[in-house]
């Protein structure tokens, strides 16, 4: 394994993106909207396809706008269906993103008559390719840094509103904080964050980092503030660990098992998600194993 400058940038870009996702993700989870990240990652496809068909080019800006519109629309539409149709939250989200994705695939197929638009380039944007640049700081680092900064400022500004409406939205409404608008703001923020990251890094890192670091922190943190800070830490740690696994451990294991020395590093984003999961499950297991068992309770009683 050789650690190059590129690896450092990959870890930095991954960590920044992961952290910028973790912030809104904590509140998504508290609002029981954890599957929104996955839904948006599918639902952006028609937005991208329409933007492409309208602008006729593969420029970033129109595609980003299209994806963003589709993401926000998913969140709003599923909320509306849930409310006016009395459909359960998960189901309404599922209906919307499945239909959006199907429209997207159809459009891509139609567009493919004219030019090649590969849907997988949207869903599996590559962290490794994003950092390749002749010199200086890669663009993706700047964009993810800006996203992180904006998210941090917004979360800091609206911390108490977000916390209150996640904890008790009826009380929040009575205290003059309309939970609908807080939730809408949160979903828009999530959409922007996700779409920014999809474009450069790919969806899987986003889906994972929205929820897993926050869930890991929730396993042992008691206050929302500490959950936020701990989830930032876990997000950064998972990025570094994931990349390390991707370039050393996994290729080495596979090469050994398959008797084929040709395998280089595997997808860093995928391994970052895996690493976040490893941290979550090891902490969960630790909690389970360290739990006082029946025997100790009986001893207390017989005193």
């Amino acid at each position: 394994m050789i650690w190059t400058e590129l690896d450092t940038w990959i870890v930095i870009a991954g960590a920044l993106t992961a952290m910028s996702c973790a912030l809104p993700g904590v509140f998504l989870q508290l609002n029981k909207q954890s599957m929104l990240g996955d839904a948006i990652s599918h639902a952006v496809l028609p937005g991208i396809a329409i933007a492409f068909l309208l602008s006729g080019s593969k420029d970033t800006l129109p595609m980003l706008a299209g994806a963003l519109a589709a993401g926000v629309l998913t969140a709003i539409l599923s909320g509306t269906i849930q409310r006016i149709g009395q459909v359960e939250q998960g189901a309404s989200l599922g209906v919307v993103f499945c239909v959006f994705f199907a429209v997207g695939i159809l459009l891509v197929r139609v567009a493919a008559d004219h030019v090649d638009l590969d849907p997988s380039c949207v869903l599996f944007g590559s962290l490794e390719l994003a950092v390749i640049q002749s010199s200086g700081i890669p663009k993706v680092v700047w964009t993810s840094l800006i996203t992180l900064a904006v998210n941090s400022v917004l979360v800091a500004l609206f911390f108490k509103e977000l916390r209150l409406s996640a904890f008790d939205n009826r009380y929040a409404a009575s205290a003059g904080i309309p939970p609908e608008s807080v939730r809408l703001g949160l979903t828009i923020l999530t959409s922007i964050t996700s779409v920014m990251a999809f474009e450069s890094i790919g969806s899987i890192l986003v889906i994972a980092m929205l929820i897993v670091p926050g869930a890991t922190a929730l396993l042992f943190c008691r206050s929302v503030g500490s959950v936020l800070f701990a989830s930032l830490g876990f997000a950064a740690l998972a990025s570094a660990g994931g990349h390390l696994l991707a370039i050393s451990t996994i290729p080495a294991m596979l090469s050994y098992l398959l008797d084929n020395p040709d395998i280089g590093s595997v997808s860093s984003a995928g391994m970052m998600a895996t690493c976040a999961g490893l941290m979550f499950f090891s902490i969960l297991l630790g909690k389970i194993l360290s739990k006082p068992r029946g025997a100790s309770v009986t001893q207390v009683d017989t005193q």
Binding site: G37, G90, F124, I204, V266, A273, F280
Partner: peptide, 24 residues
């Protein structure tokens, strides 16, 4: 951890690992 979060965790972690293996 709420059910929806558990679903998201399992989805993303397993899928992430799958993506990594696929890239291999």
């Amino acid at each position: 951890i709420k059910d929806d979060a558990a679903l998201a965790i399992v989805l993303s972690v397993f899928f992430g690992f799958g993506v990594a293996l696929l890239s291999a």
